[in-house]
Design a protein around this nucleic acid. Structure first.
Length: 92
DNA sequence: CTTCTGACA
DNA sequence: TGTCAGGA
């Protein structure tokens, strides 16, 4: 095969500007979500955030949950529980 | 690009 | 409470 990762959802490299534009959110919001514990994007040496395709999908879920009426604290719990479910299903 | 503070719906 | 806007 080609050898090197064709597409790693865990390693999609997007800057915060392009990530915010792709999900239709403000740059400041993405930083707030990270400060709230809604997601944990990778950081480069300079300290710039690196959003993966997985993070983009998570940001879209955040927007859906926000529209559903949940607050950032509730969304953080939902995302945490969803990750837990995936973990349990993988171990199942 | 980062972080912080302020003001508004 | 969440979002937007500014400055350092």
């Amino acid at each position: 095969m080609t050898g090197e990762s064709p597409v790693d959802p865990e390693r999609g490299v997007y800057g915060i500007s392009v990530a915010a534009d792709l999900v239709g959110m403000g740059i400041q919001n993405l930083r707030l979500y990270e400060a709230r514990g809604l997601l944990d994007p990778d950081r480069t040496e300079g300290g710039t955030r690196r959003y993966s395709a997985n993070d983009l999908d998570r940001l879209r879920r955040i927007g859906t949950l926000l529209d559903a009426g949940l607050n950032l604290a509730g969304i953080a719990m939902v995302l945490q529980l969803e990750g837990r479910i995936v973990e349990l299903e993988a171990n199942r």
